[in-house]
Design a protein around this nucleic acid. Sequence first.
DNA 1: GCCGAATGTGGAAGCGCTTCCACGAATGTC
DNA 2: GACATTCGTGGAAGCGCTTCCACATTCGGC
Lengths: 341, 341
Amino acid sequence: MTVSGTRTAAPTLDEVALRAGVSRATVSRVVNDSPRVSAEAREAVQAAVAELRYVPNRMARSLVTRRTDTIALVLSEPDTQVFSDPFFASIVRGLSRALAETDLNLVLLTARDAREQEKIGRYARRGHVDGVILMSLHREDQLPEVLAAAGVPLVLCGRPFDGRPVAYVDADNVGGGRVATEFLIAQGRRRIATVTGPQDMIAGVDRFQGHRAALEQAGRRLEPGLVAHGDFTEAGGARAMAELLDREPGLDAVFVASDPMAVGALRTLQAAGRTVPGDVAVVGFDDAAVAQTCDPPLTTMAQPLDEMTPLMTELLLQQIDGGPQADSRVCATHLVRRASA
Amino acid sequence: MTVSGTRTAAPTLDEVALRAGVSRATVSRVVNDSPRVSAEAREAVQAAVAELRYVPNRMARSLVTRRTDTIALVLSEPDTQVFSDPFFASIVRGLSRALAETDLNLVLLTARDAREQEKIGRYARRGHVDGVILMSLHREDQLPEVLAAAGVPLVLCGRPFDGRPVAYVDADNVGGGRVATEFLIAQGRRRIATVTGPQDMIAGVDRFQGHRAALEQAGRRLEPGLVAHGDFTEAGGARAMAELLDREPGLDAVFVASDPMAVGALRTLQAAGRTVPGDVAVVGFDDAAVAQTCDPPLTTMAQPLDEMTPLMTELLLQQIDGGPQADSRVCATHLVRRASA
DNA sequence: GCCGAATGTGGAAGCGCTTCCACGAATGTC
DNA sequence: GACATTCGTGGAAGCGCTTCCACATTCGGC
């Protein structure tokens, strides 16, 4: 260890081999847990590895194994406020936790525009990553095609728009939207509005779809006046709620397709002098942390992220290992009752 | 392109060389923009590259150049809610934008505990990354030492606790705390409280320090009863504010060391029937997006993240290229007046 | 018109690793 | 006790790339 910042010369396989009194090949076998090694050899190597503080050079290894032990989380989003979305935060956290078990690393990539998507396509081809998890996908995004064509193992976070055979993990958003709305109906609410998510994202579409289905099943019709579109952000929710209040002052419930939006809606409602849940019942979606701390605490649909993120990595890993390409899972959502409805 | 997901065999340097009718060495020169290549050779190679859709194999290149074109953003944090912190989100966004210009990639790593910090140390040694940006550092963290000892180029987001010579980029947190408090004093507020950040993080310490300095300069004393410690989260801010209100019902202003905490404080204040800014003036810190949307919009200290993230990458790149090891920058903060004070 | 310098190019070495292959030793089988 | 197997090991090739070195060329200066 030198005084200046010079990187200490890293030991190589040969040095370990020399010290352990075996060949490079044997060291490699030990390091890679090959069974074809005698106990003594193994111990000698392990001792040498420990003494030398040997760490394999990942580049050299990747060059021959064609594996990088790196997977990419790609955000198809014009980066504005995605990062602040608690849903994104949960995914990253869950993924990084699931990956901590393995020795895979998580590369975060954002694709602001077509040019960047192209850059990511290039990056993913040629084995710079072993696989990709794609989230925050929009209807027109070409990335799944590009990646699939390049043969890059791929798992989508959220089902694809078309029925294309690709692996994905999703929450049951349709079911969630339905349950939330049914709950509002069961409460005896008469004029139930909704703030949807963006309609170019599948979660936005599906939750809205579930809402409509519940309404129709109860013999009601979806009234256009009771629908406003948001963008999954708090500000967007506040705006949409204002729109709704403007058009339909008599509404007495609202299903909001994400918690951040619901928080925004809450604020608008309170600013307009409505009590929650007295005048207006509010049900959100996500069960984000903020749902517990906002005022009143939010009744919301929980999606089992704890289940979903390990599933994504599992599906991806399995695919990397040559498993099925289009295995998918849909996870159940459930209602978490708090004070807003 | 085969029908199944088989990765199309990627062209290598040799194939390009063959097609262009030159040697491997020449192709490499063209790809790496070496000037020592004739115009014809360059054109021939470029044509071949385009036809073959050649992309260099990064692993092979890294093996010889000792560069990975990857930098790591390391979060030294028991991952709980860091990701939801808008400050973190802004840093990631800024960094990934700054890096988009180059062809560097951002690896996100979290170090939940000592074991993981060790893992990261191993990862960073042996050139798996060209450099590290370390954020969310706590007083006892060993990571800077480990990394510095390994000779890994390093830039801290926030100054180190001791005066150790290491590159960092920080906001002028002391100055910010002072300005915020002076502003409250100038308003004629008599009993000014503070909700601090965690005191094992430098930003928490410095902002508190600035607060105290302003008080003393105005001939006042820091009263322990007017100080509560938070953890930079909204829930923590709400809790601390409740504590404060409990101890000092007569307070008429509070400097809160982060915007998420300020939002929590706002909620507590309103729940306690205090008007803001009528009864209690509130000044936050960060100028996060939420500062504009909360009610009332938050008067807060802005730190110039737009300046800071490019600076971090610049400092790191410069260090990677063999530049100075301990160059640092402190960026000015400024007050953003909104409605809460 | 000759010599040294500048210039473009190809050959070849080697980055650190995995893995195929061959080989000798140990084991099992009749 | 002779043979076929298995097992552990080392040698060596080679992953795709960069770069040093040597070798033509071409050029300008006298």
